[in-house]
Structures are given as C-alpha cells and as structure tokens.
Nucleic acid binder design. Structure first.
Lengths: 231, 231
DNA sequence: CAATCGCATCTGGTATACCAAAAATCTGTT
DNA sequence: AACAGATTTTTGGTATACCAGATGCGATTG
C-alpha cells in the first residue's frame, strides 16, 4: 500500500502535465479517456479532477467537460496579492515561532537555490524552480500555523505554471537572489518588520514580472529570448 | 435547472448539521449509513464529504471513517489569524476597489445586524449570526478579488460554529457593534489604514473571546467526564 | 443552397456491486 | 482469568453499469 491515495497520485500526475504544458490551457479533461489512459476507473480520476479544481488548476462546468484553467492577468494578479498577504504573515509569524533548525533549513534552501540559479539550464530549470518553491513553502511551514501553510501551498500550486515562466527568466535571477537573501537575514535576525517588508517586495516584483510576461505573450511570439515555447 | 449539484446539496445539509451541533465533533460520518439516510448513493455523499473536508469541517483519515472536526484552541486561533490577514487585506482593497453601492450595502448589513442584535433571542440568533457573516462576506467581495473572497469565505465557513458560539454572547455585542461601525466609517472614508486597523482589532477581539470560550468549555468538560464514561 | 429539426452519440452524474484492509470480538490456550 | 491469534464484520476504496442531458452532424425541406 502506498502512502499517497490513488486519487492523489492521479492528481499529482495531471498537475505535472498541466504545469509542464502537456495539458494545454483550455484542454478538456474527459473522464473516460483519461481514466482509460491511466489504467484506472472513472471514480478516482473524478476525485482527482475535483482536487485540481479546488486548487484552481481546472475549471468545473456543469454538464460539461472540465477544462484546464487559463487564468487571465487579473486572476493571476489577484492570486499573487493573496499569496503576498499569506506569505508576509508567514514570515512575520516565523520570526516568532520558527526553531533555529528551521531557519537554518531555509538558509540551506536559499544557498542551494542560489547555486543552481547560476548554472541551471534546460531541464535543470525544473529543479531550480522546485527549490524555489521549497524555499517559500519552508517559510510558510516555519510559521507553525498548519492552516496558513496549507492555504499558502494551495496558492503556490495554483500559480505553479505562471511562477515557473517567471522564474526561468535570467534577468530576474539576481534580484531574486538578493531578495531571498534579505528574507533569510531578516529571519535570522528574527525581525518581523524586515521579513514582512522583504517578502512584500519580493512578491510585488513577481507581480510586475508576471504582468510583463503577460503583455509579452499578448503582443506575440517575437520575444523568444526568455519565454520558452510550451504550447 | 440544477443550480445546486447533488453533492453540494448534501454538503449543505451536512454542514448545517455539523454547525448546529446535530452532528457532534468527533462523530464518524459513515458513507453507507448517511447515504441510506439521505436516500442517495454513496458516490455523491462521498463527494460531499470531500467538500466538507476541504473546508476543514470534517477530517479525512486513511482507511477510516471521516470524523467531524473537533478543532483545538490552537487550530481555531491559527485559523482566525489567517482570517484576520485575509479580511484586513479585503478591507484595504475594498477602500480602493469597492463601488459606492457596495459600501452602501455593507452599511445596510451593519444597520440590520445592529437592529437584530438588540432584540434577537433563541432561534432568531441564527439570523443575527447569518447577517454577521454576510457583513464580513460583503467586505471580502468588495475587494473585487474573487480568489480572496473565496478563500475568505472558506475560512469563515470553517469556523462557523466557533463564531456562532462567540456571537451569541450578549456581553460581546456592544463591542461588536462599535467595531463594525468603525469599519463601515473607514470604508466610507475610503481610508485603508483605518479599515485595516479596525478589522485587525475586531478579529483580535474574536480571538480573545474564543480563547475564553474554550477555557470555559474545558472546565465544563472535566465535570461531565464521568457521565460520558458510564454511558 | 441554407436553415432547421431530429437522431445518434458522447459526456458527466448517479447508483451499485465487488474488493481489500482494519477493527473488534470471540475462542482457545496458558 | 488474561492474553494472543484468528475470524468475522464493518468500512472505505475502486470498478462498472446505467441514466439523463447536451452537442454535433446529417438529412430533409422551404
């Protein structure tokens, strides 16, 4: 018996497919076909789809195939604003609640992210990005508020794809590194105001970055230097 | 016209049962029995349980009956802290985004709540409370950030029962009224700092209130523990 | 030739039957 | 009488069969 329940496993697989682009935004997810493809029955696949729907990755429509979500700029921005509030709160609480070991772990993730960010190319970018996610998730967990950590993780997952596109850009890496470092320093000093301000700034920059990305995508395919073609 | 899907309807019924106390915390929710009781099959009931699980009202355990959640004081407090952040953000955004009509609606809810709070007794307390919920929900919606409103609503629902127990108390009503009024005034002045501070204070008071309630309940539980053992 | 009506089919929603794991109980032994 | 093991029963997990509604295509008619 595996730790993860079957619907969770299916959800995980579908999530990766969605976020990597194998399942393009707008694609319908037909219960029967996908169930057959994965060799499972419709029931657990159905549950998996519900999980993804709750995460905001797929859209449920009454009496219609669920479709992979294709969030507008406003929707992404709205979500990041919430994420900003959640993560700022996490950081402030972590200053009070986190153990030294947890803060050390956060620093370790920062260092690893930094190292990877200098060399990573191609497929390694996914690892780079997963370390990035782990960094932010670790902060949320360090708040010692499970509900907060869970909601934070949900928002993070919801924007996996957008954040991925953003994190891949070379131009943003130096800024990200410096902001991450400031966050870590703030945590080590256990200075809530500083950590809060740094996280706020970090996510505000993310919003700008995503906005630019969206506008570039709207404009056309000419700007291929940073944006990798997924579809 | 199936505005409400069957699982949603079931979830609604179970939610009311849980929050009104018909289904006591710790009670198992057995798929078969409940499905038979409600005259539906296990499949939609199963989905309903998942919905409630995502809302935090029931706890899912691997290979075990889901049980009605019985949150500890820390869990409730953690959730309120998140709610505080979400609602504060809502209020601040609402100052910028809300239409005059929306703010007027919020004021109307405040007036209605105030009026009810002077007279309500017995069953009318539920209406009083629902107006209270509507007031806070309206603020979240006035942020014009659907994701935020949705998450906020989820947290509100999760703590329906705790908030209900708190809101029923006579002693807190005057404080609640004055804080609600300050929030409305802040919104009408479109002063984010003021609204944020007032909402923060309001929910901080809620935390205190809930803490007191929990301590009272713990004391009461000890005296009745013998009866429970005898059955 | 186009528009519309109807039928075939595809899709999700629901019910039910089957399976495997876990809990409780009962029995046999010490 | 107490403890351990096995069996039975209860439970959730999964697969599948059935149903109703929506959709798209095609034929027929104006």
């Amino acid at each position: 018996m595996t730790d993860a329940t079957l619907p969770e496993q299916i959800a995980l697989k579908l999530r990766r497919d969605i976020l990597r682009g194998t399942l393009a935004p707008g694609d319908p997810i037909k219960e029967r076909d996908n169930a057959l493809d994965l060799g499972v029955s419709r029931t657990p696949l159905r549950e998996a789809v519900r999980i993804l729907a709750k995460e905001g990755l797929v859209l449920l429509r009454p009496s219609r195939s669920p479709v992979v979500a294709d969030p507008s700029l406003k929707e992404v921005r709205d979500a990041v604003v919430v994420l900003q509030a959640l993560e700022t709160l996490s950081g402030e609480l972590a200053c009070r609640e986190a153990s030294d070991a947890e803060i050390a772990e956060i620093r370790a993730l920062f260092e690893r992210h930094h190292a990877l960010s200098e060399t990573a190319e191609g497929d390694a970018l996914i690892e780079l990005f997963e370390v990035d996610m782990a960094f932010h998730t670790a902060i949320a967990r360090a708040s010692h508020n499970p509900a907060l950590a869970e909601t934070h993780a949900a928002y993070l997952a919801r924007m996996w794809r957008q954040r991925y596109l953003s994190a891949v850009q070379r131009r943003a890496r130096e800024r990200v590194r410096s902001q991450h470092e400031n966050i870590v320093l703030g945590l080590e000093a256990r200075d809530p105001a500083r950590v809060g301000a740094e996280i706020n700034a970090h996510l505000a920059a993310l919003i700008n970055n995503l906005t630019r990305l969206f506008e570039a995508r709207e404009a056309g395919r000419d700007t291929t230097s940073n944006e990798r073609d997924i579809e």
